[in-house]
Write a protein that binds this DNA or RNA. Structure first.
Length: 587
RNA sequence: GCCCCGGUAGCUCAGUGGAUAGAGCGGCCGCCUCCUAAGCGGCAGGUCGUCGGUUCGACUCCGGCCCGGGGCGCCA
């Protein structure tokens, strides 16, 4: 509907006498919904915007534009108001036509074409498989899934990906942690390292390993710990200690280290996959970091380094290979291959993003925690240096989540194993409440997640408020059918002209905003806009419900009203679907 | 020190240059012989952190400052 006005304004601008716009390219039409219905349904501020550069009187310019507007029956009238707004008042037929569109399009109503013909990859969560997902990851999952859905709804071809960080030191620490728990099962008494993963979830992994392998990996504790540097509690360095312990594990276990390593990785990754699937968050690919290669095998890291070398953007210093990141907007140069010959995490990052480009994605959306913001300039620099457009990478940041129980903060913290898992949270409040509350706030706003509010069955809880609207509509239709007055869509759609009450006009205004919400929310990756919209649409419905009866004797009026609320139900369902929240038929 | 995010009603937050700054909660006052009261209506509540600038117009853009959170490794 808004795009109709935009089209009319654009046509009017094009139809103005040559020279009126000073030869400049035609500007965007600048049409928006009027906040106050006294100002019509849509307002256009183009005259004021143009007046500056043209040094013209905005109201006079507005006059010219209005005069040039193509005739259209769906516009009841236009008026020029205030400093130069052009206000559009839609004819009832315009709303009716849009309602017909809702009924005809059904599940596809609202879809846009901004991304048509283009491919986007959305990478999100990507938590290290060293333990179960916690409540922070849940926000990433809910946000990323919703953003991906929004992009898809706006015409993009979307690929959802989880980067599995299954190589590197953290995974070695996991393997060592599993092994130590395993040794306990073999009867050894061990002191757990300060930097190990001490969560309870390690024990069943060790137990399963022990069940399969028996004592095959059993080494006496004194052989394991002999000659290691002191751990932190003994005045040593916890990192040096754990690294030495890992080296010892590799030495004692030889090929068995890999078995222990994989036992941890496999179990934890499966748990994460299962958790996310249960949460309704699906991925097209779980991209293994191991697939990036080691920099010498023709894999992505190798290819990235070759590209950088080919463009002359690397140098060697103190035995390490450096990338001239500072020449590409980063604050300093970065090491890609350490003096010990190992790739850095950064090398993996740029290689992975090059790989995404090589796979043909136009838009790379990488969702990260707010603590990773330093990463953006680096990876963009890498892309630029490799000859890829840096602006193809977009990195929405998700701020932290704080759990509350009533007024009390719930303590979290990972290594100490006190954290609340995503699974715990889901079991506590349900997927729907979790999904919606996670994306209710802007992603760059800290989120206070109140467990009690999420479970409350009242207006305070936006989940129930919105779902209740959907269920109520289903209930009305059921009631009508039970009274022998089932909804007759054909009659309803033919009688839409009967809908003239203020609440009905408000309903139509809200329902028809949905395409605009998708377009805008997708553009700025802001699923919270969908939540706000849902509340507003639900509020319009609840007000309508209280103001007027739907199941009336007059068949034409009854079916028209039912057609209206069925349209509302459709849009509520479509919007909930974007967020991965269910749309119940009854509550 | 540098970088990122935030500062809007008592609380939690919308508002990506437009007209009189909004919502939910909380507070107060009302509405169920009638389609689900998990609902609706009304009232009260604001120097949009602060100082300056840009503009026809600034909560929105720019600069300074204050406050809160986070980040600045050949860690992941």
């Amino acid at each position: 509907m808004k795009n109709l006005i935009e089209k009319l304004v654009s046509d009017a601008l094009a139809a103005l006498p040559p020279g009126t716009l000073g030869g400049a390219p035609p500007p965007a039409p600048a049409v928006e919904r009027s906040r106050d219905t006294a100002h019509g349904d849509f307002a256009c501020s183009i005259a004021m915007r143009l007046a500056r550069s043209l040094r013209a009187n905005p109201r006079a310019l507005a006059q010219q534009i209005v005069a040039a507007l193509p005739k259209n029956d769906l516009i009841e009238k236009t008026e020029i108001a205030g400093p130069g707004f052009i206000n559009f008042f839609m004819a009832p037929a315009a709303w009716q036509a849009e309602l017909l569109r809702v009924h005809a399009a059904g599940r596809t109503y609202g879809r846009g074409v901004s991304g048509a013909g283009r491919r986007a990859i959305v990478e999100f969560v990507s938590a290290n498989p060293t333990g179960p997902l916690h409540v922070g990851h849940g926000r990433h999952a809910a946000y990323g899934a919703s953003v991906a859905n929004l992009l898809e709804a706006d015409g993009w071809s979307v690929h959802r990906e989880y980067y599995v960080n299954d190589a590197g030191r953290q995974m070695d620490i996991l393997a060592a942690s599993v092994w130590l728990r395993y040794l306990e099962l073999c009867g050894e008494t061990i002191r757990f390292p300060a930097n190990g993963y001490r969560g309870e979830y390690i024990r069943p992994i060790a137990a399963a390993l022990h069940g399969r392998q028996g004592d095959a990996f059993h080494k006496p504790a004194n052989a394991v710990f002999a000659g290691l540097p002191p751990d932190e509690p003994d005045g040593g360095d916890k990192d040096q200690y754990i690294d030495a312990l890992i080296a010892r594990a590799r030495e004692l276990l030889a090929a068995g280290f890999r078995t222990v390593f994989d036992a941890g990785l496999t179990k934890i990754l499966a748990d994460i996959q299962n958790d996310l699937a249960e949460f309704g968050v699906r991925f097209d690919r779980w991209y293994s970091e191991q697939d990036l290669g080691d920099g010498r095998d023709g894999g992505p890291i190798d290819r990235a380094l070759q590209r950088l070398r080919a463009h002359g953007h690397v140098f060697v210093q103190e035995g390490a290979v450096w990338f001239r990141a500072a020449a590409f907007g980063d604050e300093k140069d970065r090491v890609v291959i350490r003096a010990n010959g190992q790739k850095t995490y950064f090398a993996s990052d740029i290689a992975y993003h090059l790989d995404k480009r090589e796979r043909g994605f136009d838009l790379l959306v990488t969702i990260l925690g707010a603590d990773h913001h330093g990463y953006v300039a680096r990876v963009r620099a890498g892309l630029a240096a490799m000859g890829e457009p840096p602006e193809s990478l977009q990195v929405p940041m998700v701020q932290f989540v704080t759990l509350f129980k009533g007024g009390e903060k719930v303590a979290m913290g990972k290594r100490e194993a006190r954290f609340v898992t995503l699974r715990d949270l889901r079991n506590e409040v349900g997927n729907d409440a979790a999904r919606l509350i996670y994306v209710m706030r802007s992603n760059d706003q800290h989120l206070d997640f109140d467990l009690e509010l999420a479970k409350k069955q009242s207006n305070d809880n936006p989940v129930y408020y919105v779902q209740y609207a959907h269920a109520r509509i289903a209930s009305v239709l059921k009631q009508a059918a039970e009274r022998g007055l089932p909804f007759d869509r054909e009659s309803g759609l033919a009688s839409l002209a009967l809908l003239a009450d203020p609440q009905e006009r408000e309903m139509m205004r809200e329902i028809t905003r949905w395409p605009e919400i998708i377009q805008q929310a997708s553009e700025i990756r802001a699923p919270h806009m969908v939540v706000h919209y849902l509340r507003e649409l639900a509020a319009a419905f609840h007000a309508y419900y209280n103001a007027l009866p739907f199941i009336v004797d007059d068949g034409a009026l009854r079916n028209a009203r039912l057609a209206l609320i069925v349209a509302a139900r459709q849009v509520l369902g479509n919007a909930l679907d974007i967020l991965g929240v269910s749309a119940p038929e009854s509550m």
